[in-house]
Nucleic acid binder design. Structure first.
Lengths: 300, 300
DNA sequence: TAAAAATACTCCATAGGTATTTTAT
DNA sequence: ATAAAATACCTATGGAGTATTTTTA
């Protein structure tokens, strides 16, 4: 014989009521099967759990002990069921987010915040990656979702735009071009550029370089760094000029001024994932990303 | 539908092997019922636990989560069964021992030691009681067993002798009667007695008083204390004489000498319990007490 | 194409129900 | 005498087996 959960449930009901008839009613069965199941349980255990008389039912020492544990086992199973269901719905679990530093500035904190608030039981593992690594991490399953610029995505990865904004020029505060409300890109031809390295921020690098070439010059690169805020800091120190996403103007740095450019260039960021990734948390995260993208598009 | 333990066991086997056929063999069933039970479990949970193909079975995120918990639930149940069986056998649980201080000197430490060694998982709750309280505590179930002298036991309590020994006289070292190898009780008639109070050590009190009366005198009581070792200390200080259990001579106190008495009196100690007490630990303790009593009787 | 899971169908073990007996107060 | 648990017996759900089909790598 082997113990069954039914017997635990019946046992707990009887231990709580100490009355076969009432326990049976509570269990939506009749008294005889309850008597039989309890007897079978005692038989399997090889131990009496109750002392019965026709007027009184009492727990034995073993019965009291088993009651404590049976209640815990049933509660543990119930908890396991609930948390498993939550896991299946993607409300709990682990979501591994890879992000490129250059893309992280705008989207990452707000999106992660939104997701974390919506699914507090989900564990978020953030890791910075270089763009090439991201694809590989997503395809191999080492990461569930990436936050990055759309840059030569290989087959097997999906992309969803979450945010888009124009490039603006950033100039040292005293710079002659800062006098105009709009900067014509061609006028930057002779300026030293502080820009993004091709290796770690290829999308931004290409966008800036492409923009310059279209205006008939190759940017004279003086410094490279993939951190947008560092670029702005260097511009504020007067080391050069750059083209950066407009939202960088929120930095409010005294030595740097931001100006729209004559021929607008839009840079977008989004989430990237492998559609065959079965992590249920990913689906919930993408829900958040979609909602976030719509909110950004609407409110901006 | 309701989850059954069978489903947990099947699930764990399948999660471990990731192969329906092998898991079924391991479970001593065939593959189809395993497929059905797993499907039923997933249906009840409302969540897929495995991703199956004809070549590969994998756990889902929810499946991995449920596996952890299912293993724990099964282990908890197994532990509960074992410990309940141990409880029923009296190998674990709580044994409440009441003892009278006057009886505790000889028997209690050795007997408790023996029991504690034999049943390390049993919790022993010792409490000192006055003799009258002991009966009440045993009858009402507030204590499981008493260690005491046999003294007017009421109905409903059993007694088992564990130890018996003669009374010996204890005299100050320089006392004239200490010169003889044996003390005639009658010669103590004019000595000041240090003895046991009737209230807290009635058995010893009555035995000493009865012994004296039989030799034609009423003991002249100078001091009373129910602690045997205190009596010996007071005798060593020259404050009087007494009759105490022979084993007190183990105290090896410089100022006190022990002598057998002319007409031997035996004082016994034993365990007392209510036979209707269903605490399984009591039965094991009585086993120990019986074995202890036989060892004492044999080795002495 | 072949290995393995799913499905169809049968059988029987056993849980639960009804009626009745036993037991202890 | 009576309330309540145990027992006897019946019914039927559903778990396991055998045979077969479906699936996918």
């Amino acid at each position: 014989m082997t113990i069954e959960l039914r017997q635990l449930r019946y046992f707990v009901a009887l231990a709580d009521t100490l009355h076969f008839g009432r326990a049976a009613t509570q269990l939506h069965i009749t008294q005889p099967p309850l008597s039989r199941q309890i007897a079978a349980l005692e038989d399997t255990l090889g131990a009496a759990l109750f002392v019965r008389s026709s007027r009184q039912v009492e727990l034995t020492a073993a019965g009291r002990h088993f009651h404590e544990h049976a209640v815990r086992v049933l509660a543990a199973l119930d908890g396991a069921v609930r948390s498993t269901q939550a896991t299946a719905r993607g409300e709990r679990g682990v979501l591994r987010v890879g992000f490129t530093m250059s893309a992280a500035w705008n989207v990452l904190p707000a999106l992660i915040r939104r997701y974390g608030d919506a699914f507090p039981a989900a564990e978020i593992q953030l890791s910075e990656v270089v763009p090439r690594e991201l694809d590989e991490a997503l395809l191999s399953g080492r990461a569930d979702v990436g936050i990055a610029f759309p840059w030569q995505r290989p087959d097997g990865l999906e992309y969803l735009r979450v945010h888009a904004e124009p490039l603006w020029a950033v100039l040292p505060a005293g710079h002659p071009l800062a006098a105009a409300a709009v900067v014509a890109v061609g006028e930057l031809a002779d300026e030293p550029f502080i820009t993004f390295p091709a290796a770690t921020a290829p999308a931004l690098h290409a966008l800036v370089a492409g923009c310059c070439r279209e205006h008939g010059f190759e940017p004279r690169i003086r410094l490279e760094t993939h951190l947008q805020q560092t670029i702005v800091n260097l511009v504020a120190e007067g080391l050069g000029v750059s083209l950066v996403p407009r939202s960088m103007s929120r930095m409010q740095l005294a030595g740097a001024v931001f100006r729209p450019i004559s021929s607008p260039r839009v840079i977008e960021q989004g989430v990237i994932w492998a559609p065959n990734n079965a992590n249920p948390c990913l689906a919930r995260f993408l829900d958040c990303a979609r909602a976030f993208g719509e909110a950004m598009a609407g409110g901006d």
